[in-house]
């Protein structure tokens, strides 16, 4: 940056001026974050210990309420299943992309990332259009005579898991790919040369070496899965209520703000705890392939 434009500037040393500009540029985002993010967050935490009365009563209720227990159970098994399925497909995709010819790699990656550009809402409604009882899939299957009655694809846990997996696969692919790229391409041939079958080489060499990627991808995907709101609400048809939907219900419908915010805060703490564990396993910078 040339100093000619600012004749008064020489009073300040060059280094300080650069720092000043950096701080000025950072000021606006900091203010925005404080007003629209940290303040509401503090409010949520405050409400959870003050409504309806001061104390940890709301948190105690989480452990005693049978409704909460049911919701947490549903959330947990749906999240575990959808995470495992996402990891499975994510692993296959990442493996295929990393081992594809370089000219193909960027196209394959683009195809995976394309889904980021479509909003969750649109994707969820697309699934409904495809899978409802009078949707494209059921009508087609009936016309070609494979089924007589329409299959219930949605408004059940299957629909929820389908929608969630669709959303989470790219989040599984990215950390897995970043990890697989670091695995020397000679390891598998080396194992083959020593007598391993193609699967044996994968099982004994490639899989163990991709474990760090698998662990970071699974924590990341699981954290994502806990927070799903629109997908379970629309594809679950009210039958498999998950935590996020339940919180919205408490806040919007039953106006049990204390209960809702306590649950929200507990989730936040849980996610932070998982992030701490994740941070011990991998460096965040390398997780998405940053240098």
């Amino acid at each position: 940056m040339s100093g000619a434009a600012l004749p008064a500037a020489p009073a300040l040393p060059r280094m300080d001026r650069t720092q000043l500009i950096v701080w000025a540029m950072a000021l606006l985002p900091i203010v925005v974050l404080c007003v629209f993010y940290f303040y509401p967050l503090m409010r949520v935490l405050t409400i959870s210990v003050t409504e309806p009365e001061f104390g940890l009563g709301n948190y105690r209720d989480i452990f005693t309420s049978s409704a909460v227990r049911r919701v947490v159970q549903t959330t947990l098994w749906i999240c575990v299943v959808s995470s495992v399925v996402s990891l499975f497909f994510g692993y296959l995709l990442a493996y295929a992309i990393v081992h594809a010819a370089p000219s193909w790699q960027s196209w394959m990656l683009l195809a995976v990332l394309l889904s980021f550009w479509v909003s969750v809402l649109i994707r969820t409604f697309s699934w409904i259009a495809l899978l409802q009882t009078r949707g494209l899939v059921n009508e087609t299957l009936q016309v070609i005579g494979l089924i007589d009655e329409p299959i219930r694809f949605i408004r059940n846990p299957f629909g929820v898991i389908l929608g969630m997996v669709h959303y989470m696969i790219p989040y599984a692919v990215l950390p897995l790919m970043a990890n697989m790229r670091t695995i020397d391409t000679r390891y598998v041939p080396a194992a083959r040369g020593l007598g391993a079958s193609p699967f044996g080489a994968f099982w004994r060499v490639f899989l163990p070496l991709s474990l760090p990627g698998l662990i970071s991808a699974s924590i990341l995907v699981f954290i994502f899965s806990i927070g799903f709101y629109i997908t379970p609400a629309l594809l679950g048809g009210g039958r498999s209520t998950m935590v996020a939907e339940y919180i919205a219900l408490q806040v919007n419908e039953t106006l049990a703000w204390g209960q809702g915010t306590a649950l929200a805060s507990s989730m936040l703490i849980l996610v932070f705890a998982m992030l701490v564990v994740l941070g011990r396993i991998v460096k965040f910078r390398t997780m998405f392939g940053a240098a």
């Binding site: 020397d184 000679r186 390891y187 041939p189 080396a190 194992a191 083959r192 040369g193 020593l194 007598g195 391993a196 079958s197 193609p198 044996g200 060499v205 163990p208 070496l209």
Partner: peptide, 20 residues
């Protein structure tokens, strides 16, 4: 024959020792 059926020893460039 696939490599694992040939029973040849092989030393790779850069060795390719399994890091785990």
């Amino acid at each position: 024959l696939p490599p694992e059926k040939r029973e040849f020893g092989m030393v790779f460039q850069g060795y390719a020792l399994f890091p785990h």
